[in-house]
């Protein structure tokens, strides 16, 4: 088991490095001289040349990558062109807010998805099943930036029960005042994982229910409670993997919802950076979010191996 974990971590390292290469290259796929992408246009000539030297931009690409990577490892993601502030500092603050939003939306979406998905599987073929499936398709088909707008129209403009924008004053705290800011964006963001989980859980549970061993279990006269336990343990590894992926997608994909609700997270930061063509911020945010995703995948994989006896541990 321990050796498997080590091997899995070893496998994640080249992936993480490749991800950093892609992020590094973002500066270079931007049109024009890369130097223009990392410093403001009105910088004096001497400073430009100094930066070019510091970043090794006069050297071949692999060397540049090495210089860049050594900076990144030390926590230096460069400076924003627009604000001239360090990217890393702003990013940490923003990532915290995004995490609050993503984890809330994820838990909400998972709860709804698991509930509806397993209900649909148990009542397969009935109208209950059809309703759940319809919800699932709607959940994955709805443009959530539009849903966000509709929510704002209903709950902020027409009914005035929840605030339409922001994350409340100051730092995030889990209190009533801040939570009301979370309601609308979290529900909006939750609709994708809810739809997707409904679909996945329905598929997995109905697949399990169709297997022979369920007949055996029923043949043993087990109570429904015990039967449910068997289904949960059989389905958990796959569902866990899907949930892990979804949480990662929410962290990295909250840009549109954050834009709609002006939620001050990484998404809003990215949006502002795109608008100003602030490449260091785009690069830094992408790198941090992708690394989070790599880590998350690693953790989910290890957990999956730990709870599923069918996976042979070598």
């Amino acid at each position: 088991m321990f050796r498997y974990i080590l091997r899995r971590i070893a496998y994640a390292i080249p992936i993480a490095l490749s991800v950093s290469v892609v992020c590094f290259l973002l500066v270079h796929i931007a049109p024009g001289d890369p130097i223009d992408s990392i410093i403001p246009p009105d910088t004096p000539r001497e400073v430009v040349e100094q930066v070019r030297k510091d970043y090794g931009l006069d050297k071949p690409l692999p060397v540049q990558y090495a210089v860049w990577l050594s900076r990144v490892v030390q926590g230096d993601l460069g400076r924003s062109i627009a604000t001239r502030r360090l990217v890393a500092g702003d990013l940490i603050l923003a990532a915290r807010k995004t995490f609050v939003l993503a984890i809330t939306a994820a838990l909400l979406g998972f709860a709804v998805g698991i509930l509806l998905g397993s209900t649909a599987a148990f009542y397969k073929g009935t109208w209950i099943d059809k309703a759940c499936v319809a919800f699932a398709v709607a959940g994955v088909s709805i443009p959530h930036y539009w849903l966000g707008m509709v929510m704002v129209i209903f709950f902020s403009v027409l009914m005035n029960v929840f605030p339409a924008m922001g994350a409340g004053p100051g730092d995030w705290v889990w209190d009533r005042e801040h939570l009301q800011y979370l309601v609308l964006p979290a529900i909006t963001l939750a609709c994708i994982p809810a739809g997707l989980l409904t679909r996945t859980v329905r598929g997995i549970v109905s697949e399990i229910l169709s297997q022979d061993f369920v007949t055996t279990l029923r043949g043993k006269g087990l109570r429904n409670r015990t039967l449910a336990l068997h289904i949960v343990k059989n389905g958990a590894p796959t569902i866990l993997a899907v949930m892990g992926l979804q949480l990662g997608y929410l962290m990295g994909g909250s840009i549109l919802v954050e834009t709609i609700f002006s939620w001050p997270g990484t998404g809003s930061m990215l949006n502002a950076a795109i608008f100003r063509r602030d490449i260091p911020v785009i690069q830094g945010a992408t790198l941090v979010l992708a690394m989070f995703f790599v880590m998350l995948n690693l953790i989910v994989d290890i957990m999956q191996t730990m709870i599923d006896p069918r996976i042979v541990r070598k």
């Binding site: 022979d212 061993f213 043949g219 087990l222 068997h230 343990k233 059989n234 599923d308 006896p309």
Partner: peptide
């Protein structure tokens, strides 16, 4: 079921719960 009447199946691989 299970107490008075019990059943065994053709394919024990699929008739047993794989994760217990």
């Amino acid at each position: 079921r299970g107490r008075q009447v019990a059943m065994i199946f053709q394919e024990p691989m699929t008739a047993l719960d794989p994760v217990f």
